[in-house]
Amino acid sequence: MEPALKIPDKGSPKPELKRRPDGSDPADDPAAPQIKMFAKSLRAWFGPAEALRGITLPIRKNCVTAIIGPSGCGKSTFVRCLNRMHEVVPLARVEGEVYLDAENIYGPSINPIAVRKRIGMVFQKANPFPTMSIRQNVLAGLSLQGLRCRAPEELVENALRKAALWDEVKDILDRSGVSLSGGQQQRLCIARALALEPEVLLMDEPCSALDPIATAKIEDLIHELRESYTVVIVTHNMQQAARVADFTAFFYLGELIEYGKTETIFKTPQDPRTEAYITGRFG
């Protein structure tokens, strides 16, 4: 497939990326990290309601990209489009392209299940499987697909270590996954996603149901995960975006208003709506 990655979209009529003051698109910056995923003119509907109105956005490799914006702006829909979870909802529909490396995951020959194995996801509310133990939860990605693992103990320990949960649960691996605290459950879900060795990790408001201490732990974790994974995090906590993200995209009413380095977005936003949002005047 042709490298569709340098497209500051001419084809789509709707939103252009805001240029930086020097006129360059952040995507053109040669020093910027490699692009892992690229959404091109992505549009999504719930029945007749258009939730995304043509989003073109790069996701950079081994970086944390934060999606911010007021409720209902389409940020969750956007990440759900990145691993083809949007279409799971009845009457939901997607148009446009999303590239993972050089491959369009909405291409005709693509199996969404294969996509989801490469792109892990963590949800707003921790959702460990109640019928499974902690160990089984970590291995769930394999066992659901009926796969056997050669060294399950190693895999469990590795995944739990990466999710910074191992020390807290190593002696209670056979307890039910739902017996843990909310923050631990969320990290268990992260471990469950990491056990499948995904390339990209999508996090849909992973801390919105957690207290500040649990939130801090997850944020530290996101920092570490960046070393080996590409992370996309949806949040409506702007401090969180500022703390964890390398790049930030601001969504409003289903459109991408502004995208750039987190520092630039927060210090010198170009669009008045971005400025209004990050200074807390709406949303």
């Binding site: 979870m85 892990g120 990605g141």
Partner: peptide, 27 residues
């Protein structure tokens, strides 16, 4: 069975059949 658990299954790369047999029915 909460919808969030079905989503968790799909996000882990399970298909509908696996989701029903290994998560929805047991619950």
């Amino acid at each position: 069975v909460p919808h969030s658990l079905r989503e968790a299954c799909y996000a882990l790369g399970a298909d509908r059949w696996q989701t029903i047999w290994r998560v929805v029915l047991p619950m």
